[in-house]
Design a protein around this nucleic acid. Structure first.
Lengths: 228, 228
DNA sequence: CCCAAGTATTAGGCAGACCTAATACTGGAA
DNA sequence: TTCCAGTATTAGGTCTGCCTAATACTTGGG
């Protein structure tokens, strides 16, 4: 079922808005109407309208012409959706042969349809994982989430050996490319070279060197091998 | 994704209507507005309205004041939904610990959200089953469905031994009761006694006799052990 | 053969969720 | 400080999908 507020069922759309606003306000800073519109591929007036409805439901606070912030209740719903999304992704990859570049689209629809029971059973079948296939942390059922500290591959010193922890999942094409190179969470890489002025970096994994552009190196997040 | 007609996506509601009409017209006999309304728990005018839209899409034929029949396209959509529903049920029971009385509700929402790809992967994971946990046949991906011949437990002769093939899944309470008695598809039972005038029947399974009412015996369908 | 009961449809409304066009605000540059 | 560019909101419209109330069929019994 959908999330509820005072026993009222939220629509798929509402859930998507709350998730989008959560994504756009990492530190609780207000999100702008047009950013939301852009992310959800809707017109700004549509967003204004929905924002009004959602703030009447107490899910967010809206200061006209200023921006939108989630309330506690709104953030709970958003985190619930994030949890669902990431667990579904993990489940589909683990048990149904999905690749990490195709799983996002499927999860995007399923997250609105699964029950809490199903989500928890998938979590149990996976052994209650803490991250999804892209390394994104999965919030607890109670809504707590732990972002793990990491640095972009682009910022690692030459010679250092690190473990890939997380990869931006917004572009399937990019994910496919990274998978082909074997650059995915859990893989240990050593930085062999970095060209100046935003030039390419050379990383070595399993003895094989790969040269990747600076832009790509920016979305591959790493941490020292030991920390977990 | 949802079923499409000429590239147009059908809504969840449309899919539910088509499935309901399929259920209500076993031999292609027209279904009445009020039967549809009753099954979907909607008002008759709502049904009239939707019927109009769906017949404009070429999914069904409507003779006002007479009834509604699926077209070929409409039946294809309906069978696709039935396939999804039953495969989802089978998957959830097999892999995620669902019981056959709780699985229906979950499948009812998921059937609108899963992609064809996911359905086929679930089918493959199950070894392409031909029936769901209640013994209902699963249509092929191409839309062909084979109803297996069976007789109600209420109509078996005393002394005969048969295999349970299928159980009506519309009442979770009843399913739970039958499961408690061990009366489920695949189980072999021998009819020991039947009281006249719609009285109870006594069946024996694994050496244990159970007395069940005539109404219940009517929805438990059986076939000779060998046929499959 | 006509009428009442039952069933179906039309009329008219409402909420959600979207759109485009028009208007209102805000903040920075001249 | 005024104006303009950009951003946000309001106005007004559409479509889906539901509702209730009113009207129109159909049909079996008298």
């Amino acid at each position: 079922m959908h999330a509820t507020v005072d026993g009222e069922t939220l629509t798929r759309s509402s859930e998507d808005y709350l998730k989008a606003i959560y994504r756009l306000s990492p530190e609780g800073r207000p999100a702008s109407t047009s950013d939301i519109a852009h992310l959800l591929e809707l017109s700004p007036p549509s967003v204004s309208g929905m924002v009004k409805r959602l703030s009447e439901l107490g899910l967010l606070e809206h200061v006209p012409y200023k921006g939108v912030q989630l309330t506690g209740a709104g953030r709970r719903v958003a985190l619930r959706m994030v949890r669902r999304h990431r667990l579904i992704e993990a489940y589909l990859v683990q048990f149904l042969g999905y690749s990490w570049d195709t799983v996002h689209v499927e999860a995007e629809r399923l997250e609105h349809a699964v029950s809490d029971t199903l989500v928890e059973r998938m979590s149990a079948a996976l052994g209650h994982p803490s991250v999804d296939p892209h390394g994104d942390p999965i919030p607890d059922a109670d809504g707590s989430i732990r972002e793990l500290a990491s640095r972009a591959l682009a910022d690692i010193s030459v010679g250092q050996t690190v473990e890939i922890r997380r990869v931006d999942d917004s572009d399937p094409e990019r994910l496919r490319y990274l998978a082909a190179l074997g650059l995915m969470p859990g893989v240990v890489v050593t930085l062999r070279d970095r060209q100046p002025f935003g030039g390419p970096v050379t990383v070595e994994t399993a003895g094989v060197p790969h040269v990747i552009g600076a832009e790509l190196a920016q979305v591959v997040l790493c941490a020292p091998e030991e920390a977990r």
